[in-house]
Computed example of a mutant assay.
Amino acid sequence: MNNCNSNSFAKEFYLTGFPALHDYQMPLFPVFLLCYLIILIGNVIIIAVVVMDEKLHKPMYFFLTNLSVLDILFTTTTIPKMLAMFLVNAKTISFNICFLQMYLFHGLTMAESLLLVVMSYDRYEAICNPFHYSVKMTKKVNILLAACAWVTPLSISIPITFQASLLTFGEKNIIYNCFCDHLAVVQAACADFFAAFQTFLGFYFAMTVSAVPFILVVLSYIYIIISILKINSKVGRSKAFSTCTSHLIVVGTYYSSIALAYISYRADLPIDIHILGNVVFATLTPLLNPLIYTLRNKEVKYAVKRFVFLKIFSCSDKL
């Protein structure tokens, strides 16, 4: 933490990016630009396909479109600034924009955790209570579940971000990260008890809001697996497992990236490894989600093929 005059007021922060790769920033630009374009195009295609294909007008795919929208917003809070850093060395960020980025990053992170829980609950109802599924998972219930997954974390993030903004910062503040993460920003504050407490509070709050949804997802799939194993038909078991495969891979990827970020923070490793853990967490899951669902989910894969074929066919007709 920085030692500074309590009368000073922070106007901007300085993001270090990857300090060890300072002279190699330009090669990072096309890599992250490609990742961002894949995230945008892949998730937009999923949203368009689910909206346009009536066969996908099911609760499972309604939640999938929410996940796609969330991934677009989540990466848009961080990657564009990173691209500017790598391309033109634009490493300064204003006080207000930094805390807005922090709020959105952590709020949307928690929203993704809760949305994965909602999607697990949907699979639980579909497989464990198939005869009551259509009665329980009505359009109104789906909208309510999705709204809770969005509103709750975005509301919880407000007081945390506000408290962090009240910390004392100097005129020049170095944030060892590629974006304004809560922990990195708090560590840039002036050394005092309140800043140390914010570091402790922020870290353990982040672990809690990750662990609780993870436990709920695991419990859901324990019941799902038990129900699937009770199915007598081999074809029926295979079909039930296939409806969960994509979501399980997404959950595994998401929590693996969280584990990587956690290990990189707790272990005595170079600062670049800490930063890399955060960057991987911020980009890996949104990058893989559309690829996983278009390759592993048969209904989405066929819908995407029909969508692409119709677009190509309509374009050829115009020519």
Rank of each mutant, 00 (worst) to 15 (best):
N129I: 11
F131E: 15
V117D: 00
L64G: 01
H106G: 14
A184H: 05
F162D: 07
I222H: 12
P130T: 05
M110P: 13
G252V: 09
L87C: 10
Y302P: 01
T109W: 10
A259F: 12
I249R: 01
S246H: 06
Y24R: 14
I72H: 00
N173W: 00
H22Q: 12
G17T: 03
V141T: 13
A211H: 01
I156V: 11
Y221H: 13
E299L: 10
E112I: 13
G17R: 00
F214E: 08
F131M: 14
A111D: 10
K239A: 15
R237L: 11
V280C: 03
T138A: 09
F197H: 08
G252Q: 11
S8E: 13
I225G: 08
Y14Q: 02
I97F: 12
K239L: 15
S155A: 15
K136T: 13
P159E: 03
L145Q: 09
V235G: 10
S157H: 02
K139C: 12
L33Q: 03
I273C: 10
M102S: 03
L116R: 06
I160M: 09
Q25H: 04
T77H: 08
K318D: 12
C180A: 09
V69Y: 11
F74A: 10
I174L: 10
F29W: 06
F205H: 09
M119P: 05
Y24V: 13
G170V: 08
S210C: 14
N5G: 05
S314K: 11
L276I: 04
P80Q: 05
R296Y: 13
A147H: 01
E112A: 13
V186F: 12
F307N: 03
G17Y: 00
N173S: 02
S157F: 04
K298P: 12
L40H: 09
L64D: 00
F105W: 08
I156P: 07
S257W: 07
D122T: 11
L64R: 00
L67M: 15
T285S: 14
F205E: 08
K311Q: 13
S316F: 11
P59G: 00
I39E: 02
S134D: 15
F281C: 10
A149N: 02
G202V: 02
I38H: 07
N177H: 10
V135G: 10
Q198H: 07
V300Q: 07
P290I: 03
S238F: 14
N43T: 05
F193G: 08
I72S: 02
I143A: 12
L64K: 00
A184F: 04
M102Q: 07
M137Y: 00
S120D: 04
S6E: 12
L108N: 05
D23A: 15
T199E: 15
T76K: 03
L219V: 12
K230H: 14
I273E: 06
L229S: 15
P213Q: 04
Y121I: 07
I143V: 14
V44D: 04
L269V: 15
Y204M: 01
A10N: 01
G252W: 11
V51E: 00
V185Q: 04
N3Y: 10
K305D: 07
T138F: 06
M26E: 13
L64T: 03
K81A: 09
L87P: 07
K301Y: 01
C148Q: 08
